[in-house]
Amino acid sequence: MNSIWTIARKELSDSLRNRWLMAISLVFATLALGIAWFGAAASGQVGYASTPATIASLASLGIFLIPLIALLLAYDAIVGEEEGGTLLLLLTYPLSRSQLLLGKFLGHGLTLALATVIGFGVAGVAIAVLVDDVAIASLAVAMLRFIGSTVLLGWGFIALAYLISVRVSEKPIAAGLALAIWFFFVLIFDLLLLGTLVASEGQFSAELLPWLLMLNPTDIYRLLNIVAFGDSAQLSGVLSLGADLPIGFAGLWLGLVLWFAIPLAGALLLFRNRRI
């Protein structure tokens, strides 16, 4: 446990030192405040639209940003150490491979969680204080749900980045694959799903289709933050499938948790069997 924390602590202090933590927090806070204030601009006015609309917009932007940040933060976790020669050295220390990877995960995970809580937390507080007629309770619940799911989504992509990082032997390849993962889940997946829907002309099993959304953590994340308001009208595109998902909230949360637990377990397994 001690060595896990030693590794995590180095990652945390690294992200403080290179100002990653500060930069991500700042981006999140600016984004949230910008959307809160100019979210109603589409309808021709400036000002706070509504909590559901704000969260929905944040979630839509979040699915682009969070995976990207998580992948960038974590893609060189192992391959970076290997290129510097420190991986070999670390493994000669009283430290198992699992401990090393879990320490990295704790460090990167805490960095992302802290940035999310600080960035969006500050924005939430600012909205609560500055907007006159906002319902504090529902805002707080929505914000907490949003922050929680954002952290889980980020952890998922950190774990996916590790899957790459323990497999490849060069940093540029890891970076390329990380971008490919981002591209697939954020852009390609929904297109594929939509294409399947259209091409199958309704022949596809109607019960199976909504479950396909669970194969993409960013879709789960959006569902979680939009469906929560019981407003299915907000669901556009493939997300409308989500209204038919028979698993409810707990299932969506579980989905996000599985999406970081399974890739992390996979990365641990791959790392343990890897030849040094």
Binding site: D14, R17, G84, T86, L89, T92
Partner: peptide
């Protein structure tokens, strides 16, 4: 055990 590998680049920062 103490080990000095060949060519280590330590964390530059």
């Amino acid at each position: 055990i103490g080990y000095l590998p060949e060519n280590v680049m330590f964390y530059p920062q």
